[in-house]
């Protein structure tokens, strides 16, 4: 492994770490505009993270060590995931380490730990949130796998980088199967990132919340890490979507210079994607929790149909 490779990998992870809170801030800002509210600052997420890192972290009396290490594990998983996903460049030293299936496993690993930590304290809200999270997770994962498989079927490989390399370099072809996969992926990422039709990211202390119910007991630097990890997850999902369905503008060789050129393209794509996400959130109402299995079953089914259509039409 060359120094340039190591450097480009580091650049990718640092870019993800720095851009992720900005993306969350941008989505919140767009949503506030669409709802005719005065928008919070774009940099609010950074200020919140700084504030939380400076605060003291209070841990419940009965907390086990699991509760303390869970935020680090979740943050580590999300940082690793954003290092594996080709956000800026296709040629990365880390990307052969994990293919699409391992990536889904990485997200599942983080989910298991955050749910265990939520149940660890034994409060009612934590257990409730953890159960709901697992309900959503076990339905969303197969759908996500099917989406990634329908992209893999086109290129005969489950490695994300080679999928994207083939999609970006081959001459432009319209794949009907990817249209299905795109719709399914949108549904899955709304559910996985605790977005409006499934969960509301801006509520605290409501009976309908899922993600916020799990992290209710965290404070200080632990909470900061979890919030940062949530932003990173949104960033990672947006990047998977953008690179699968709009695979243009990535650097082909992992040289730092080319990656810096790819950065504005990524920021532009993320800005458009974030605005669309805010639009979806603004026009849809939160659904009942028992409608969520139906929502995710639809996503799974669309992804499966996408694969079938691929076999039929090629």
């Amino acid at each position: 492994m060359s120094w340039s490779g190591v450097f480009s990998q580091l650049l990718e992870i640092v870019a993800a770490l720095l851009l992720a809170p900005l993306l969350t801030g941008w989505v919140n800002q767009c949503r506030a505009w669409l709802q005719n509210k005065s928008a919070p600052s774009l940099l609010l997420q950074y200020q919140m993270l700084r504030k939380l890192f400076h605060k003291e972290s209070v841990v419940a009396e009965h907390a086990s060590p699991l509760f303390r290490i869970a935020p680090y594990i979740v943050f580590g998983c999300m940082a690793l995931a954003s290092g594996i996903i080709p956000t800026l460049s296709i040629d990365l030293p880390l990307s052969p380490a994990a293919d699409a299936i391992a990536l889904v496993g990485l997200f599942a690993f983080a989910r298991v730990f955050i749910s265990l930590a939520a149940m660890d304290i034994g409060t009612a809200f934590g257990s409730l949130g953890a159960r709901r999270e697992m309900l959503i997770g076990f339905l969303a994962e197969p759908a996500l796998l099917m989406v990634l498989f329908s992209a893999s079927l086109i290129t005969q490989s489950t490695s994300l980088t080679s999928v994207i390399e083939t999609l970006a370099h081959r001459e432009f072809v319209i794949y009907p199967s990817l249209a299905f996969a795109g719709v399914a992926f949108t549904l899955v990422s709304l559910a996985e990132n605790a977005r409006v039709p499934v969960d509301n990211p801006s509520t605290h202390l409501e009976l309908t919340m899922i993600h916020e119910a799990m992290i209710l007991e965290y404070s200080g630097r632990h909470l900061a890490l979890i919030e940062w990890a949530a932003s990173l997850k949104l960033f990672a999902y947006s990047c998977i979507g953008l690179t699968l369905f709009f695979p243009w503008g990535l650097a082909e060789v992992g040289s730092p210079g080319e990656m810096i050129l790819a950065l504005p393209v990524l920021v532009l794509k993320l800005a458009i994607g974030g605005a669309l996400l805010a639009l979806i959130e603004a026009v849809s109402a939160k659904m009942r929790i028992f409608r969520v299995p139906e929502f995710l079953a639809t996503a799974f089914m669309l992804a499966v149909i996408g694969m079938l259509v691929h076999f039929l039409l090629g």
Binding site: I174, P176, A179, F180, I305, L313
Partner: peptide, 14 residues
């Protein structure tokens, strides 16, 4: 694009 419209037809059926 005909294939794409056909897929849209199926998508809308679902």
């Amino acid at each position: 694009s005909v294939n794409l419209f056909a897929s849209a037809l199926l998508l809308l059926s679902f």
